[in-house]
């Protein structure tokens, strides 16, 4: 209940929840077999698959290689999306003219799924990392723009007026007023962007990857190897979680005044 509840360490509860899920999973698939092994792998099978991918390797690489390559791809796509999306969003938030000019095109391209860009990404950029980064970029770009836009719009007009009356203009206005003011929402956008990057990775690696977690998922799908699919999913969840934690640290560090 809301009021009587004293909050224990989140980590402890989270950890015990995950442990409970594993126990339930074991009970359902192995002990009682309510879920037949054909439909979902047992913990033992997943452990076996994990051992296989870390020791012998799977889908042309070992888990750590897949993990690192995927992180690299996501970072590239994320950086490109942030580097372009945040300034563009802020510009649209600041200037109604820029908004009127850019927004229709943005609205036109926005609802097209990243996956749908794959055919074009292949013919334009080939089978290398560039095409994969492009697909990831498409996914991450939209939330970066929207939230940066909303961030600038959320700044109280009197703050800007006050800064102006103090003679703050141009680059300094952006640095001292607009950027800090928009930062909380920009970070919201970055979190969403990062998530979009990871959920798009699998799709991006349909473009003939050699290593990568998405490639593991794809290959395991082709091999009908559900245990390996689960290993890949856990890998993606851990990588995504780690990057989000890092982003949270960055957020806390960059906005010391905004600590919750």
């Amino acid at each position: 209940m809301r009021n009587g509840w004293r909050e224990p360490s989140r980590l402890a509860v989270g950890g015990s929840t995950l442990a409970a899920v594993v126990v339930l999973w074991y009970l359902a698939t192995t002990f009682t077999q309510i879920i037949p092994p054909v439909y979902f792998p047992t913990p033992a099978e997943v452990l076996q698959a994990f051992r296989q991918i870390t020791v012998q390797g799977y889908a042309d690489g070992q888990l750590q290689q897949h993990f690192l390559h995927s992180c690299w791809l996501v970072l590239m796509g994320f950086a490109a999306a942030v580097g372009l999306g945040v300034p563009l969003g802020m510009l649209m938030g600041w200037s109604r003219r820029a908004e009127a000019l850019i927004n229709p095109v943005f609205l036109l391209l926005r609802p097209i799924p990243p996956l749908a860009w794959i055919p074009l990404a292949i013919v334009w950029l080939g089978l290398g990392d560039a095409a994969k980064v492009l697909v990831i970029w498409f996914a991450a770009f939209v939330p970066a723009v929207i939230n940066s836009y909303a961030g600038v719009r959320s700044i109280e007009p009197y703050l800007i007026e006050a800064a102006r009356s103090l003679g703050i203009r141009g680059a300094m206005l952006v640095r001292e007023v607009l950027f800090p003011g928009a930062l909380p929402l920009i970070f919201t956008g970055l979190r969403l962007s990062l998530q979009a990057c990871w959920t798009t990775l699998v799709a991006a690696e349909l473009i003939g990857a050699i290593v990568g977690l998405g490639h593991v998922l794809y290959q395991a799908g082709l091999d009908l190897f559900p245990a390996m699919i689960v290993v890949g999913m856990i890998g993606v969840a851990i990588a995504g979680g780690l990057m989000t934690t890092a982003l949270g640290r960055l957020e806390a560090w960059s906005m010391p005044w905004h600590r919750r």
């Binding site: 209940m1 809301r2 509840w5 909050e7 224990p8 989140r10 509860v13 989270g14 929840t17 995950l18 899920v21 054909v38 439909y39 979902f40 996956l115 998530q195 990871w198 959920t199 798009t200 990775l201 699998v202 799709a203 998405g214 998922l217 395991a220 799908g221 009908l224 559900p226 699919i229 890949g232 999913m233 993606v236 969840a237 990588a239 995504g240 979680g241």
Partner: peptide, 30 residues
């Protein structure tokens, strides 16, 4: 509303968030 449930379920949802919908395609077929 139920804080205790939130603390239990949220870590699971957080983990699943990063898994792409298309990663579920093989299971969906299965």
């Amino acid at each position: 509303w139920f804080r205790w449930l939130d603390v239990i379920v949220s870590p699971l949802l957080d983990a699943l968030r990063f898994v792409a919908p298309i990663a579920w395609v093989p299971f969906a077929a299965l």
